[in-house]
Every structure is written in structure tokens, then in C-alpha cells.
Simulated assay, not measured.
Amino acid sequence: MSAPFKIPQSVLVVIHTPALDVLLIERADAPGFWQSVTGSKDAEDEAFEATAVREVWEETGLDAHAPGHLLTDWGLENVYEIYPQWRHRYEPGVTRNTERLFGLSIPKPVPVTLSPREHRAQIWLPWAEAAERCFSPSNAEAVLQLPRRHGR
């Protein structure tokens, strides 16, 4: 039995510290493609925040609601063209995805538990370096927003 098609509604969660060090994870299916936590809704009626909490847990093992952690819905959405190499995961004819942006502040950089099926490496970088490393323009733009969002 094949997996169900992905829903073209997803989250992007920029995990960072108060010093604006940012966690990036490298895709297992696309070496050299570094990104923040991303993932699609499991159901049309799943709230974006619930998707964010689930994806952070699945991809890093971090609990978004742990003491000292602050998950923030940035109230922003990107609509973008789905990369051709990943369109087969969606219903035929689906070419665009809506991505809701979140930030997750954690006290300090920590090693995370990656899902080897999805990611192969992790790195913590200062925000400007992290933005340069992101393969996705929308991910890079989200990281570049961190200083402004934190009054710097």
C-alpha cells in the first residue's frame, strides 16, 4: 500500500536560542540541503500549531512545550512552488504549498535526535550564517527575520 498524498499545507519552525544561534538539519534525501524543521499537516483540520509541535518532536526529539521553550506563531504564511523532485508526494496537479512560520526559542544549543529517514546531520550556526546555509529562500528569509523579531 502506498503512502497517502501529502497535504499542501505545512509549517516551517525556526529553532533558535536567545543568542540567535539557529539549528539546521540536513535532508537525508538531498545531501547539502540544509533547513529548519518543516512538515505537512497530517489532516486538513490539524491546527498549524499542532503540526509544528509534532514536526519538531518527530524531526528533533525536542518538546516544543518543555520548560524554557517558547513556540511562537509568527502569523506569516509563504505560498511557494513545490520543487519538482518532491511533487510526486502530492496529488496530481498540486504544484503550490502554503507554509506557516513559527519560531521555537530554546535556552541553548543542544544535540537533537534526528529521524534518520528524514535527516542526516545537524548544525547550530549564528543566524546570518544559518540563513546563508538554507537551501530554501523562504527558510533563509525566516531566519533573517530573527534579529528584528527579538529587538536587535
Results as ranks from 00 to 15, higher is better:
47 A>P: 10
86 W>V: 14
96 R>N: 12
118 E>A: 10
86 W>P: 05
106 I>L: 14
106 I>T: 11
20 L>W: 03
11 V>H: 09
51 T>Y: 00
22 V>H: 06
25 I>P: 01
33 F>K: 14
22 V>K: 06
113 T>P: 00
71 L>N: 10
31 P>S: 07
142 A>D: 01
71 L>R: 10
121 A>I: 07
59 E>P: 02
136 S>K: 10
33 F>Q: 15
16 H>M: 03
99 E>G: 10
24 L>C: 01
101 L>P: 05
27 R>C: 04
27 R>H: 07
139 N>S: 08
66 A>M: 00
125 L>N: 04
7 I>T: 03
60 T>D: 05
77 E>G: 02
90 Y>Q: 01
36 S>V: 02
19 A>I: 01
108 K>V: 11
40 S>C: 15
53 V>E: 02
20 L>Q: 09
94 V>C: 09
86 W>L: 14
14 V>N: 06
98 T>H: 15
68 G>W: 08
99 E>V: 15
62 L>C: 03
5 F>T: 01
107 P>E: 04
95 T>G: 07
69 H>R: 11
63 D>M: 08
43 A>Q: 15
59 E>C: 01
134 C>F: 06
103 G>Q: 12
117 R>E: 09
103 G>S: 15
102 F>Y: 12
80 Y>K: 14
10 S>V: 00
2 S>T: 09
123 I>N: 01
133 R>E: 04
74 W>C: 15
129 E>S: 11
35 Q>M: 14
123 I>R: 05
30 A>I: 08
146 L>G: 10
64 A>V: 05
1 M>D: 08
98 T>S: 15
138 S>P: 07
88 H>P: 03
85 Q>L: 09
118 E>C: 03
31 P>D: 01
99 E>L: 13
149 R>G: 13
74 W>S: 09
137 P>C: 00
133 R>H: 06
95 T>A: 12
111 P>C: 04
106 I>W: 06
52 A>M: 06
50 A>K: 08
